[in-house]
Amino acid sequence: MTVSDPLGHVLGAMRLIAPGGAAGSKTLVDLAGPPWRVDAARAAAAAGLDPEGTWDIATLVTRASTTGSGTRLSLALVHGLVQVARVNAAASFTAVLDERVRRLLNGFGAVTRTLPGARTAPYLGSAASTPVYLDMPSTMDAQRRDVPDSYRLVSLGVGLDGVSVPPPSHFRLRPLEQPVAIDLRTPAPSAARAAG
């Protein structure tokens, strides 16, 4: 998911991984390895995560050159995340978040919880990252109750001035198209032969 300017330059992006892949949850795979070495299946069960309804937030980034608009871009991306959750019935999300990003999300009322057994540690160039999860129903309820301005802005998109959000159908996960098999051993028919 991206936020682009009118010229098509990407200013912010969020990479999401839907459940159901053969490799499993990226966050839980990361949790099982260094520096945490936590029993990821047990941690997910303790957090009440349903593997079939849990998506991964693999990347959340805004362009460094967008100083002053980074918060607005982050708000737009988090609004997109809420739309993804709604149209795809995503019950929860997991991620390994840099603590700066985590504080930003928490400030919007998208309060993340540390996965059981995990702790904040240096990870992939970040001095302080934490494996977290976000339960969407309880988060949306708490946000609506405790920070209604953020709920209107982030969850409903009311007040995202200058941001054009596509309709909900654009946030629906689409099945991958079947790859086209090309046989390099057989030459393609020429246009003349194909027409005749």
Rank of each mutant, 00 (worst) to 15 (best):
Y133C: 14
A181L: 07
V163N: 09
L160D: 06
V96L: 02
D161Y: 00
V101N: 07
T66K: 13
A89N: 13
D98E: 06
I57P: 04
R102I: 07
V158E: 11
H79I: 02
G70K: 15
P166L: 03
S164T: 00
H79Q: 03
N88G: 07
R172M: 08
H170I: 00
R100L: 05
H79S: 03
S169T: 05
L184C: 00
G162V: 13
R63K: 11
A90Y: 04
G107M: 04
H170S: 02
L176E: 14
D98I: 11
R152F: 00
A181M: 03
V158D: 09
E177M: 13
A127M: 14
A128N: 06
G162C: 08
G107F: 04
E99L: 08
V84D: 03
D146E: 00
S74D: 15
V165S: 04
L153Y: 05
V82K: 05
V61D: 11
A142Y: 06
Q143V: 03
G159P: 00
P179E: 03
L104S: 09
G159L: 06
V132Y: 07
Y151A: 05
A90D: 01
R119E: 15
P168L: 02
P137N: 15
T67F: 12
R72H: 13
L77M: 14
E177P: 15
P179H: 04
T112A: 09
P131K: 02
L176C: 12
V147I: 11
D161C: 12
S150P: 00
A142C: 04
L105A: 02
A85C: 11
A76L: 05
G162I: 10
S74W: 11
V111T: 15
P148D: 01
G125T: 10
D149E: 15
F108Q: 10
G68M: 10
D146S: 01
V96R: 06
D141N: 11
V84H: 03
R145L: 07
G80T: 01
E177T: 12
S74K: 13
V101H: 01
F93C: 03
S150K: 07
M140S: 12
P168S: 04
L160A: 13
G125M: 13
A118W: 08
T139C: 07
R152P: 00
S92C: 03
I57L: 14
I182W: 04
S74A: 15
P122R: 10
R144L: 10
L75D: 02
R119Q: 10
L176A: 14
F171M: 08
L75T: 01
G68A: 09
L124E: 15
D135R: 13
